[in-house]
Computed example of a mutant assay.
Amino acid sequence: MNPLAFHTLPKKAGLINPVVLAYMGDAVFELLIRQYLLSLSNHKSHHLHREATKLVSAKAQRQLLERVQQLLTEEEADIVRRGRNAKSGAPPKNADVADYRQATALECLIGYLYYEGRFDRLAVLIGIAVEETVAEQVAKE
């Protein structure tokens, strides 16, 4: 058993409401981003927070999803569609509706992969997306 899987689900992840998957995906994504940032050299809390904010906003999550979209399996693409089309409430005031829906789709995928125990796949997709995003940000500076 993977130490990250503390509890087994009563049903298959594919049967869980996409908004619930996105809820868990949001938490897992935040944890993965924090772990990634701690692997870098600057550990000042202000810097960590600022860098995390660049990657966890709705706009950034939409961009991350766009980076891995072509790598998704048919099953994963279906989960993304379900997440994007889910009625998840009103977006935050500072978020574009389209960005928010795409961010929810990414979070849904992350929640799905987490609950399915596909940690290696999750690491591959998030790793590709984050590394490309960070490289692009560094190039702009």
Rank of each mutant, 00 (worst) to 15 (best):
M24Y: 12
A90I: 08
N17I: 04
Y100P: 00
G111E: 01
Y115H: 11
A27S: 15
Q35S: 13
S39Q: 12
T8G: 11
A13P: 04
F119L: 04
H7D: 14
L72E: 01
F29N: 04
N94T: 14
H49P: 00
Y100W: 15
L32Q: 10
E116N: 06
G83T: 01
K93P: 11
G83M: 02
K93D: 14
A58K: 04
V20K: 07
C108Q: 01
Q102C: 11
K59V: 07
Q35M: 11
L15M: 09
R118Q: 14
H7G: 13
D120M: 13
C108R: 01
L64F: 08
L72F: 08
K44E: 15
V56F: 04
K12A: 10
L71E: 15
R50M: 12
L32G: 03
Y112H: 09
G89L: 07
A90W: 12
G127W: 05
K11A: 11
L109R: 00
E75D: 15
A103P: 01
S39K: 12
A13Y: 03
I16K: 01
A86T: 00
N42R: 13
L122A: 02
E74D: 12
L38S: 07
A123N: 13
I110G: 03
S57P: 02
D96I: 02
R121L: 03
L122W: 03
H46F: 10
S57F: 06
H47D: 13
R34P: 01
I79A: 06
S45P: 06
A22D: 00
T73Q: 11
Y23H: 09
R34E: 12
T53W: 10
A86R: 00
L48A: 06
G14N: 04
A27N: 11
S45H: 12
E30L: 14
Y112E: 00
Q61M: 14
R67Q: 11
C108A: 13
R118A: 08
L21P: 06
A95I: 06
Q63W: 01
L32E: 09
V28T: 04
A58M: 07
K44L: 10
P92I: 03
G117F: 05
I110V: 15
I128C: 09
Q63V: 04
L125M: 07
D96P: 05
G25E: 00
A103H: 04
A98Y: 12
K87S: 09
G111N: 05
T8D: 14
L106M: 09
L55R: 08
G14Y: 01
V28K: 03
N94V: 14
A77W: 04
L31P: 02
T53A: 13
F119D: 06
G25C: 01
R67G: 02
C108E: 01
D99L: 05
I110M: 03
L106K: 08
V19I: 11
Y36L: 07
T104A: 03
D120K: 15
